[in-house]
Amino acid sequence: MFTTGFKFFFGLSAAFCAAALVYGYTTGGSHVGPVSLGWKGGVGDHIGYGVLVGLAVACLTVSLVLVSFRDADASAQARLQNLAEVLTDQPVRASFWPVVAAFGVGAAAVGLVLHPMVFVLGLALLFLSLVEWTMDAWSDRATGDAEINRELRNRIMAPIEIPVVGTLGVAVIVLAASRILLNVSKLEAVWVAGVASGLILIGAWVYTSRPGLGRRLVRILGPVAALLLLVGGVLAAVAGERDFVHHEVDTHEETGEPAVHEESG
């Protein structure tokens, strides 16, 4: 009747309730304050009491969800629905998120000592991998069919993943390309941008005119171009921007209009 997940989280909720009561009374709560959630009297230390009660409510909610959905357990659901065939647990799919999580932990550790940006990057990787891992774990057991599970997972995650990956991709392209263009001279920047635009145009033309060949080319040249862009961007960022001579702008004494004295380099 009561699933394992429900019992676990319900027990946890009860424990947090008890902890909140003890904490409330031991930090100056009145007689009925901690029991009535502060409706009648004080609850002692507000922050600690609030955190504990919040945790208790969260666990209670999770426990109710779990008992409603039978712990998302295929065999339990099959029993509940009187299905003749018990849906067995599906084996997990291959995933690279555990490795990303491990790298996130490593990056956070290194960043903790060396640079805050690396630390934040590590935490971001860790958070991202935990979200993806959670969804993968859920979808593995959503139904008894691996293909349906995959579709279910993609239906939920793709609307999030595609815009995020697209945004990150655009950000990386813009950042890397801008570093390259700012590193070379003004004239060279024009050439680089022109050649790159030309290559994109030719690639697009090949892709549309000969789809079969175009797909193969994109598969091969796409990662190479992305890698080149990334490496070029990093190298250009390390080398720094070209020297700029800033405009000296002052005001014409008589007309009051700006007068430019020097060009940029």
Partner: peptide, 23 residues
Amino acid sequence: AGNAAFPRAALASFWSWKIGAVI
């Protein structure tokens, strides 16, 4: 058992250990 429990955690275990060792 056909596979260990939590095979993804097993993979995370290996890579965490490996990255820790490198550090």
